[in-house]
């Protein structure tokens, strides 16, 4: 028994060594990055795997920041070929990439995603401005008496902020700080809402850190609840508690349109059309980044880009719109398709 065990262990070690050898050649595309882009990238990957002779790409949802970190790790089969991102790559990340030998990056914008504030259909929809949302959710808000000071958020109900709003306790379920949705919500709602106060806007130009301190601190007294990355869980909670609101990507509202309704932000309802033509204010572009050095090394990258940037995928009536992607205008699609075809380098 003992001897046999040793032999089995030895055999397994040999298998492991074989694995090292095999790791030198990878025949599938490895994609990491944003969980917001994940539902779209996976659909393209699946189609690509079924209709082409290449293997289906493996896709991991690591978050935008985590994906870029892995992506910029270096050139070689053990590093991913493509990373998805729900925000644009930062200059610091490009530098990190360059330092690790990833010098040529192709940037492809794939479309837009709206971030919605939604609640159960059992109650009336809310019509709220970004300034009011800032006042409802920021940890510290400008003193209502008018001085240039912040005080701890005193508002308990929506009604306290604006008498036109319902007399319900403020209760918003949202994503944790690791999420790209949270980043975008901060930028598009909290920052813009805060800027409605002239002195905060002036502060933003003068002292960026103090500005972020005010706009990026969410309430911790129970009015804003971090609900984790699982958006389906938020949807279920909203169903049970009609007074609560949730923050998530448009695709979840789209899929649950029988149970949930979107809040009107600055008077605009979050509909497919309003997000597409930019009327709905809380929307952001989605990207993916390709490591040019891997094109030719890993089979199928060019063909995958071709599939992703085809009209039948990301066009106005492409299959990605069925999954909730908001397509770019025609001119932008043409530009990024050309970038993908000729592998143009990213320029910030």
């Amino acid at each position: 028994m003992f001897k046999r065990g040793v032999i089995v262990a030895g055999a397994c070690l040999l298998v492991a060594m074989g694995g090292v050898g095999l790791a030198q050649a990878r025949d599938y595309i490895s994609i990491v990055g944003s969980s917001t882009v994940y539902p779209f990238a996976t659909v393209v990957a699946e189609k690509f795997g079924r209709i082409s002779s290449f293997k289906t790409p493996a896709i991991e949802a690591t978050g935008s920041g985590g994906g870029l970190k892995l992506f910029c790790g270096g050139v070689g089969v053990q590093y991913p070929d493509i990373t998805n991102s729900s925000r644009r790559i930062k200059a610091s990340e490009v530098k990190n990439c360059n330092d690790n030998g990833v010098k040529q990056i192709v940037e492809i914008k794939i479309g837009y995603d709206g971030i919605v504030l939604a609640n159960s259909k059992k109650t009336v929809p809310l019509n709220i401005s970004r300034k009011e949302l800032f006042l409802a959710l920021a940890k510290n808000i400008p003193d209502p008496k008018g001085s240039e000071m912040v005080i701890p958020n005193p508002y308990k109900t929506w009604h306290d902020i604006n008498p036109a709003l319902p007399d319900n306790a403020i209760e918003v379920l949202g994503p944790p700080p690791t999420s790209g949705t949270r980043d975008a919500f901060m930028e598009l709602v909290m920052e813009d809402g805060g800027k409605e106060f002239p002195w905060i806007k002036a502060l933003g130009k003068k002292d960026k850190n103090a500005f972020k301190q005010i706009c990026h601190s969410m309430r911790e007294d129970g009015a804003f609840i971090e609900a984790g990355e699982n958006d389906n869980l938020i949807v279920q909670k909203l169903e049970v508690n009609p007074k609560a609101f949730g923050i998530f990507g448009f695709s979840y509202l789209d899929q649950n349109s029988d149970k949930l309704q979107g809040t009107l932000v600055d008077g605009e309802e979050p509909t497919f059309e309003a997000i597409a033509d930019g009327k709905y204010p809380v929307s952001r572009p989605l990207f993916f980044y390709v490591k040019k050095a891997h094109v030719g090394m890993i089979p199928g990258i060019k063909e995958f880009l071709n599939e992703f940037t085809s009209e039948k995928a990301w066009g106005d009536e492409g299959y990605l719109t069925d999954k909730g992607l908001i397509p770019m205008p025609k001119a932008e699609r043409v530009k990024f398709r050309n970038d993908a075809g000729s592998l143009n380098n990213l320029s910030l």
């Binding site: 298998v15 694995g19 095999l22 790791a23 599938y28 490895s30 969980s35 994940y38 539902p39 996976t42 990957a45 699946e46 795997g49 079924r50 293997k55 289906t56 493996a58 896709i59 991991e60 949802a61 990355e229 699982n230 958006d231 389906n232 695709s251 979840y252 789209d254 899929q255 649950n256 909730g324």
Partner: peptide, 29 residues
């Protein structure tokens, strides 16, 4: 924890596991 369509056929092809599949589906819209 990844989206993998092809059925794994060796120890070095990408694969997921049952609990991971549950987690991924629970997170799909």
């Amino acid at each position: 924890v990844a989206f993998i369509v092809d059925i794994p056929d060796s120890f070095v092809t990408p694969a997921t596991a049952l609990p991971v599949q549950i987690f991924l589906w629970a997170d799909s819209p």
